[in-house]
C-alpha cells in the first residue's frame, strides 16, 4: 500500500501561488533536526505563523505583480543558535524596530518528518520550513533566550 503524501498546512494557499506561476522549492525531510526561530515571549502573541497570514502582512506588492514566492507560506528557521543570533544582530543594526515584527527572542525545537519539509540550508544557516497539516510548533518550540538584552 502506497502511503498518501501528507498535505501542507497551507495547501490551499500554496496551490493559489502555484496557479500564479510559483514553484515550490526542492524540499527535504528534516530528520528530527534541532532548529531555531525568532519568536515573541509574550504569551498573547502569535508565533510560528507565516508572514503572509499575519495582519498586517509585511509586504509591498500583491504576489501576482512580482515574484510569487512560496517562502511567504513557510517559516524561517536556522540550523544553529549561533547562526540565528548572528543574523538577528545584523537585522537589528539595520532595522532598529525589528523585534516588533519578528519577535525579541530565540526559540528552539526539534523538527520531525511528520512536522513538514525543509529547504536546503543556506551558508548563513537559514532555511524555510513548510509545515504539514496538524503541525503546531507552538507545542514543540520553547523560548530560550532574549536577543535584545545586549
Amino acid at each position: 500500500m502506497i502511503a498518501k503524501e501528507p498535505k501542507f498546512k497551507y495547501q490551499e494557499q500554496i496551490e493559489k501561488l502555484v496557479a500564479l506561476g510559483c514553484q515550490l522549492p526542492e524540499l527535504f525531510a528534516p530528520d528530527n533536526m534541532q532548529a531555531y526561530r525568532f519568536a515573541f515571549s509574550e504569551s498573547g502573541h502569535q508565533n510560528h505563523v507565516p508572514q503572509y497570514l499575519l495582519n498586517p502582512k509585511r509586504m509591498l506588492q500583491e504576489i501576482d505583480k512580482g515574484r510569487a514566492n512560496a517562502s511567504l507560506l513557510a517559516l524561517s528557521c536556522f540550523t544553529t543558535s549561533e547562526k540565528a543570533e548572528a543574523f538577528y544582530t545584523s537585522l537589528r543594526k539595520a532595522f532598529r524596530n525589528v523585534a516588533i515584527s519578528i519577535g525579541e527572542s530565540l526559540s528552539e525545537g526539534r523538527l520531525t518528518n511528520e512536522d513538514g519539509r525543509k529547504t536546503v540550508s543556506a551558508p548563513n544557516g537559514h532555511f524555510d520550513f513548510y509545515e504539514y497539516e496538524g503541525c503546531d510548533l507552538n507545542k514543540t518550540f520553547v523560548i530560550t533566550k532574549n536577543l535584545t538584552n545586549k
Binding site: 502582512k57 509585511r58 537585522l91 539595520a94 525589528v98 519578528i102
Partner: peptide
C-alpha cells in the same frame, strides 16, 4: 521591484 535586499519571511 528589482530585488529584496533583506528578506526574512517577507521583505525588510
Amino acid at each position: 521591484k528589482i530585488a529584496d535586499l533583506v528578506y526574512l519571511d517577507g521583505p525588510f
